[in-house]
């Protein structure tokens, strides 16, 4: 059983996954209370699924980008759980989690997360040769700067308020596509799937290597040269959901 924990932003999410199906998931607007609300939520999904904690042998945590304080909540909890029970621990980028549900859409997908002061975290994802890949470095930039990199129809997901949505429409016209609000959200069920896959292919890294993605927050500059801190390979396939 895998427990997935995501406290990257004011939205928090936890899920329990058995390797095939999500057994329970809770996603809520935690604001800045992630630190106090994470464990009650974990306990609820364990109780609701009648799962003993000893059945949890894997833990996946979202590593960002996001709020540094928020990210540390889930990562510290994940490290504590791994120390306490010997569960395997894996970190997954928060943008990977946001993009993944849209892998079958065939669209270039751009998850957006607010980084404060009109700045957003973003990256592009696209299927190529039946492989769903991250196609850009991590961007920390304003919406116009991000849109300047866009030449084709792009599906936006993530934390997109009405203002952000209308700015994107102004900048890109019909090229800006939007997933329905409910499917734009970050859900730990997807984090669980990605984390499970990662643990199938990779042996346990050192626990201290699972760190938040501490991206410098530029006041204005684009940092297209900035690559993901971890995992390193831009070419790494994130895995496609099975086609039926």
């Amino acid at each position: 059983m895998l427990l997935a924990l995501d406290t990257s932003t004011s939205w928090a999410s936890v899920a329990l996954f058995d390797g095939r199906d999500v057994l329970a998931e809770e996603t809520w607007q935690a604001q800045r209370r992630q630190g106090d609300e994470l464990f009650p939520a974990i306990e609820r999904i364990l109780v609701n699924t009648r799962t003993a904690f000893s059945a949890v042998t894997r833990v996946a945590v979202a590593t960002g980008p996001g709020s540094f304080t928020g990210l540390r909540v889930a990562i510290a909890a994940g490290q504590g759980i791994a120390r306490g029970s010997g569960a395997a621990l894996v970190g997954v980028s928060t943008l990977d989690v946001l993009a993944y549900p849209h892998a079958l859409s065939k669209q270039r997908t751009c998850p957006l997360l607010p980084a404060g002061r009109d700045i957003y975290y973003a990256a592009f994802y696209q299927e190529r040769n039946r492989r769903w890949l991250r196609r850009s470095p991590l961007m920390v930039a304003t919406l116009p700067e991000i849109c300047r990199q866009i030449g084709t129809h792009t599906l936006f997901v993530g934390e997109i308020g009405p203002e952000t949505e209308s700015t994107l429409r102004d900048l890109l016209g019909p090229k800006a596509l939007f997933a329905p609000p409910a499917s734009r959200m970050r859900r730990a069920g997807y984090l669980a799937e990605l984390g499970w896959k990662e643990l199938e292919t990779r042996t346990q890294v050192k626990m201290s290597e699972i760190e938040p993605l501490y991206v410098r927050q530029p006041s204005i500059r684009v940092s297209f040269d900035q690559t993901f801190a971890a995992p390193p390979a831009d070419e790494r396939a994130l895995g496609l959901p099975k086609r039926s």
């Binding site: 630190g35 994470l38 904690f53 504590g80 759980i81």
Partner: peptide, 18 residues
């Protein structure tokens, strides 16, 4: 607060798992 959250969440995770 950011410092307290690290120790408290690590300890709660450890306690729950153990």
């Amino acid at each position: 607060i950011g410092c307290l959250l690290v120790g408290a969440n690590y300890a709660r995770g450890l306690a729950l798992a153990a």
